[in-house]
Design a protein around this nucleic acid. Structure first.
Lengths: 336, 336
DNA sequence: AGTTGGTGCTGGAACAGTTTCGCTAACTGT
DNA sequence: ACAGTTAGCGAAACTGTTCCAGCACCAACT
């Protein structure tokens, strides 16, 4: 509701200077700019075009991540699905690159007329998301969960499906079951490990730390893992992958060195898209609905808009979507 | 350079009415709106925020296509790569959904403050791109070529690589070589067929119409093709696919029914992303650099901006990127 | 020492687009 | 025939941005 002229009056400045400060114009003194930004934050300033409030939503990448995965594409599809009805437009940007030097993130978002952001991040850049949320800017993180209060996120719960996946392997008489997870942890992956451990212990199988493999979440990681396994004296008979690409790489490499899947090795992977159908045999996998996740992210954001207006400062929106285990051709009974 | 007040003066209307007309406000009479739009087109009206020209670029989907393919994602990556330096922002939208009833496309783009559009389309919606270009709105189509003047596009030339691919198969002593293309034609696919025919005839092989297969460009299309082939008395020994997904599907299904690749069947596919590494054996494929294509699209668009300013109305920007044949494991010598 | 020129920063004013409010004219129901 | 309603338009108010002028300060030159 506050306009640039309101800010100017409050700060005893001219509208021109306030506008310059908000647009990161170098002509304005650093101390003045800081005061303007503080006031803008305090008075909940929202930029307008003419007399109409801006209606942009950002799909923002935090950290080194870049656009590219099918998961992101499906996410965007879900986002645009809900947005266009509400008259919003979707802006794609990389927060690290879009932000000017000495500019806060919320500052950058406002400069671009963005009302709220859907954040996509890596574990390494989680603190960046926290920073944005702590600046008070409406944002929803997708695919990460956070312990602390005040930060909203939308994620898919893979705990139950992970448990299902391991139960499925145990039903097939597997006993030496390994889990393969990304080198860097995030909450989603911790869930998957927890599901694995839960299933193993409830079915009377020992959880061996040497059966928890850490690899980079790329195709190459899966390839390397198989080469390591080939040298092991009593290697596991089934692998449960917490990421899509290593699972694919492992299937390939296993077949390359002459193993038959699923006779010599059962594999369960993860799938954001349709990768499970692109390998031979088709891959048993835990699937998440990225499109629905995108829809949920947008709806959480709009909820945040209205809540922010109602001064519910510290309440965050948290939604979880279940995942499903899909059984295909890469799992079979253990062959003794 | 023309402002809303200029338009108002020209049309003997108030600025308020002109603004309403441009924003598709239903309160304005249809006849008046039409006059305003015509004048806006004639006077090259460009919307501004305050006194600054808007700096948005649209990545627009024309027709039924939706965001999702890795190709699109890489394209966007290339686009944002070049854009952020110039201070542009990228807006994602579906033109068919974003346009209001009784609104032209250039009208819709202007309403959203968009200066130029990178269009992604299907062959079925080519006329839609032509329409946008004919409205005089700066746009560049990616992945399609057009015969008529005045429409800019950026594409990758697959003629040479297609010829290379078929030569490669002939070098491996294949003679019954089939080409598999999408049911609906576009210029890119016509190129691929031309390359196929060229290679066949220069090497003294007859081009048999029954070796040109038309299928839907999906995984399922490749699967169905293999089932058809299995019933043929003297089936081809090598397949050249003009699309990525059917090639993958065909590789899968061929192995399903017990054929060995490449011993029983050689396959060359297309690849926008990294799909060729996700199958076993890895797929020999023609690869295009979608990211570079995105960069080129943006640069063509900026060129168009400056040219439009210089009144070079009918000149279109046309750029072509070469593709490369990458030999992997899905092709081998013919086995008699 | 006084003057001159440059530079960093700010404000006034002009200008861009949008919306609110009010007015007019035509239409509609009784 | 008349009151009420509604479509359509314009004046004015308001929002954000930039151009131009000005002020203060500093450095340097004569």
């Amino acid at each position: 509701m506050a306009s640039i002229r309101d800010l100017a009056k409050e700060l005893k400045l001219s509208p021109a200077t306030v506008s310059r400060a908000l647009n990161n114009n170098p002509l304005v003194a650093a101390e003045v700019r800081q005061r303007v930004l503080n006031a803008a934050n305090k008075l909940q300033y929202v930029p307008t075009i003419g007399r109409r409030e801006t209606m942009n939503i950002a799909f923002a990448y935090a950290g080194d991540r870049s656009i590219g995965s099918p998961f992101d594409a499906a996410l965007m599809e879900g986002l645009t699905d809900r947005m266009e009805a509400g008259g919003f437009d979707l802006l794609i940007l990389d927060v690290k690159r879009a932000v000017h030097p000495r500019e806060t993130f919320s500052h950058m978002f406002r400069r671009k007329g963005i009302r709220g952001a859907v954040l996509r991040t890596t574990t390494a850049a989680k603190d960046l998301c926290i920073q944005i949320a702590e600046e008070g800017f409406p944002c929803v993180v997708v695919g990460e969960s956070f312990d602390r209060d005040g930060i909203s996120f939308v994620r898919s719960d893979s705990l139950n499906s992970s448990r299902d996946a391991v139960h499925h392997l145990i039903d097939l008489k597997h006993e030496k079951i390994a889990i393969v997870v990304n080198q860097v942890d995030d909450s989603d992956h911790l869930d998957r490990i927890a599901g694995y451990q839960e299933a193993m212990t409830t079915r009377g199988l020992k959880v061996d730390d040497r059966l928890i493999f850490r690899i980079p979440a790329k195709r190459e990681g899966g390839i390397q893992l198989i080469r390591r396994l080939a040298a092991m004296p009593d290697r596991p008979t089934a692998l449960f992958f917490a990421d899509p690409l290593p699972a694919i790489g492992a299937m390939m490499e296993a077949q390359n060195i002459g193993w038959h899947i699923p006779r010599d090795l059962s594999i369960i992977g993860f799938d954001d898209a349709e990768l499970r159908f692109m390998v031979n045999p088709t891959m048993t996998a835990i699937c998440q609905d990225a499109r629905e996740l995108g829809r949920m992210a947008f709806e959480s954001l709009t909820l945040l808009f209205s809540q922010k207006g109602r001064e519910l400062q510290n309440s965050a929106v948290r939604r979880t979507l279940p995942t499903q285990l899909e059984c295909h051709g890469s799992t079979g009974p253990v062959c003794s």
